[in-house]
Amino acid sequence: MTPTPHLLATRSLSARYGDFQALFSVDFRIAAGEVVALIGANGAGKSTFLRALMGLLPVGRDMVLFEDQPVGGNPPHHMVQLGVAMVPEGRRLFAGMSVEDNLKVAIDHARKTGDKTWTLERIYRLFPILQEKRNAQVEKLSGGQQQMVAIGRALLAQPRLLLCDEISLGLAPKVIREIYEVLPEIARTGTSIVLVEQDVMLAQRASNRLYCMLEGHITLESTSSEVTRADIAQAYFGAGHEVA
C-alpha cells in the first residue's frame, strides 16, 4: 500500500464521556482538497468524532495527526491556528451579537499562516442575504440564514479542514440545496471537508469518499461513487458487521 498524502488522520482514536466509551479505535484519514462524508445512525459517534478532532474532548496525543504531527488533545483555539474549523451541530451562534460581529470574531482569531482566502466580502457574495442582515441579531434570523452565518464563521477562520456537523438538519429542502451548492466552491479553494450528514443520499452525492459509523466503530470506508446501497445498509444497521 502506498502512503497517500493526508492532511489529517486518526490512529486508533478512542474517546469517552465519563464511564461511557463513545469511540473505539477509529482510523480515519482525509487528503487535502478531499470531501469525506461521515454517515451513521443517531448516537453512532459522529459528532463525538468531530469534537475529538476539534480538541473539545480529551484524547491521546498520538491519536490525531495533522500533517503527520501529533495534535490530539490540543485545545480548540490551537486547532484553529493549525487550520481546523467547525460548523457545529445546532449552529451555536453567539446570541445577542449581530451577524457581522459573529463573523468578526472568526476574522479576529483566524489562522495566521497562509493566504486569507476568505474575506467578509466573499462570504457576503456566497450568501448575499447575510450582507442584507449584517446588523441584525443572529437569533432574529431564520434557521437557514443562521446556518449560513455558522458556515461563514467557520470559513473566516481560514480553515484547511472544515468540519461540518449536520448542516442540513431542520432546514427546508430548498435551503439545503442552497447550502450544499457552496460546498464545491469551498473544496475548490483546496479546503478539505468532513461532512457529517443524516441524509445518506445527500452525503454520498456531495463527497469523494465516505465512512459509516456504528456504535463508535467505523463499519465502512469506501469511495462514494462505488459504494452500493446494500453495503451502506449493512454498515449503517450493523447486520453482520462483525464478520465483515
Binding site: M54, P75, P76, H77, V80, P88, R92, V105
Partner: peptide, 23 residues
C-alpha cells in the same frame, strides 16, 4: 474591539467561541 467581541462570544457560548479560535 476584538477583545470585546471575543468576550461577548465566550460569554454567549464558551465552547463555540473556543472553536472559533478564542481562548
Amino acid at each position: 474591539t476584538r477583545f470585546g467581541r471575543a468576550l461577548r462570544a465566550a460569554a454567549a457560548d464558551t465552547e463555540a467561541a473556543a472553536m472559533t479560535g478564542v481562548n
